[in-house]
């Protein structure tokens, strides 16, 4: 079985960012907005020639974007270099997804995009347009916690809670795909998220509870 449907599917950084002069993929993404010197065309996209083809380019200034978040259409204005995570947190005040490593390692920013988990820190906001984005804020229905959320509470699968929204999203997506997950599927599905307080024991118990519930016909795909 391919693991691509359950692992976070962003490529790893190309370079170690161990020094101030180091170049990481993310810093490259962030910086590229100012590095390009393209004549400004008022009111939208510019076209540049790249490898013999016409390529539409946004920026470097702010551009209007529309994101579909938890079923609602949200509009804001961001520089093209802004990540989905930063647009959510800084521009739309949707702060459940957390910024921790900011380079696709720890999973604290995990959201679901078109049915797959992604690291929101490594998706550009402009590229998230037209996709269905689900964040932890979108799991409750009618004021009731999603069974995965309830299982995290019941099994104390959290301490400081900073990694929790990411784990909840990864766990929910894993159970949507594998309602009766094997040991390996759990380790694969949650292997892209890290916790510092050490709540994995509770998380394993929470997965077991939520899986039992979903097999009994509990609500899924919430």
């Amino acid at each position: 079985m391919s693991s691509s449907d359950e692992r976070h599917d962003n490529p790893q950084d190309l370079h170690e960012n161990g020094s101030q002069s180091g170049v990481s993929r993310r810093n490259f993404l962030k910086g590229s907005g100012v590095a390009l010197t393209i004549p400004l065309v008022a009111g939208g996209e510019k076209i540049v020639k790249a490898a013999g083809a016409d390529v539409p380019v946004l920026g470097p200034g702010k551009v209007n974007i529309t994101l579909n978040i938890n079923g609602a259409s949200r509009t804001t204005s961001v520089e093209p270099r802004i990540t989905l995570l930063d647009a959510l947190r800084n521009d739309l005040d949707i702060t459940g997804a957390k910024r921790v490593c900011d380079r696709a390692t720890c999973g604290a920013c995990t959201v679901v995009m078109d049915g797959n988990v992604v690291y929101a820190c490594s998706v550009l906001a402009i590229e998230a347009q037209g996709k269905k984005i689900q964040t932890v804020e979108g799991l409750e229905q009618n004021g009731r916690l999603h069974p995965v959320q309830q299982a995290f509470v019941d099994n104390d699968a959290q301490q400081c809670g900073f990694c929790t929204p990411g784990f909840v999203m990864a766990c929910k997506n894993m159970l949507d795909k594998h309602p009766a997950p094997t040991h390996e599927q759990i380790e694969m599905g949650l292997g892209g998220n890290l916790c510092r307080c050490g709540t994995y024991h509770g998380i394993k118990a929470a997965v077991a509870q939520a899986a039992r519930q979903s097999r009994r016909g509990g609500r899924r795909n919430g």
Binding site: D93, T95, K98, V136, E137, E140, Q149, Q158, P165, V168
Partner: peptide
């Protein structure tokens, strides 16, 4: 405070705008 933490309602310092 478990329900607040699993639902993203818990506001951490980093979350405050």
């Amino acid at each position: 405070d478990g329900p607040d933490k699993v639902s993203g309602k818990a506001k951490y310092t980093y979350d405050i705008n």
